[in-house]
Amino acid sequence: MRKHASALGSSALLSVLAYLALTGLQGDQGQVALLVVVWTIALTGLNVILGLGGYPSMAHAAFFGGGAYLSAILLEKGLSMTVAAVVSVAAIMLVGFLVALVFSRTRGQYFAIGTMFFTAVAFLVFTNAAEFTGGPTGRPVDLGYSLDATVVLLAVSVGAGLAVFHLISVSRFGDRLRAIREDEDLAQHLGVPTARVKLLAVVVSAGFAAWAGVLFGQYNGVIAPSQFTFVQSFLMFVALGLGGAGRLLAPVVGALVVIGLTQLLNLGPGVSQIVLGVLFIAVTLLAPNGILGGITALTRKVRRKEAVA
């Protein structure tokens, strides 16, 4: 019970913080706040398949971009924003289902490579289907919701998404995913329908990414293929690893660190990626369970020392 309370409490608190950041920060800082919030929502989905299930999906940026483009196109065709959003998310979840069907027989790095190619193909579509996507330079997105409504939706989605993740994590579905991460063959031989569980996890994660994409398009007003490359997928993977994959707040920490480093420190495009790479290696070596995992281990150590003293 206490575990639920603290998880749901921190989810709600983060919604409030997201709202304050989105309404309080202006200019470049406001843009950073938007990206951190959007990434948190998207990474919460990635945390299901990668964090709980241990499957390094590199399709996430494609689902993210798919949600953004599809909702923009449907909105332009005259659908209401809500219908456009629902249809886009559902369609991208269906795409996720197909992607998972194709790659569910692969594991580890092969799954990563396969899903990375999917993102590369999606990028080609975003770039070349210019009639719908505006081509390499991107396209504007009509305002479907008022900006105020979008801000509220973004903030609510952060907390709601984290709450949904928590419920998944403590459910049987979460147990089954963690079992797959630990030893997929053993899981299967204890009755876990691994193929179906993985499929569902990819579909859920695609839904989160697509919804994040819809909101990103609405707030940003313009979308371009360069925002949805497989490098973005990889950065999302890095962000979740840095935060502590599988942990509730890993998306928040990961988004803050990666977006913060790439956008806020303004080190220049090449340098920031080098810094990120070094940081990723350092965290992997020093705290294999990410920043949050490291903090947990450290507090446990301190407490044990206090208990001894």
Partner: peptide, 18 residues
């Protein structure tokens, strides 16, 4: 083959669920 980082009780809970 075991779920190495799990306790046995956690593994049993999964198995009971199936």
């Amino acid at each position: 083959r075991l779920f190495g980082s799990w306790t046995l009780r956690e593994g049993l809970r999964l198995a009971h669920g199936e």
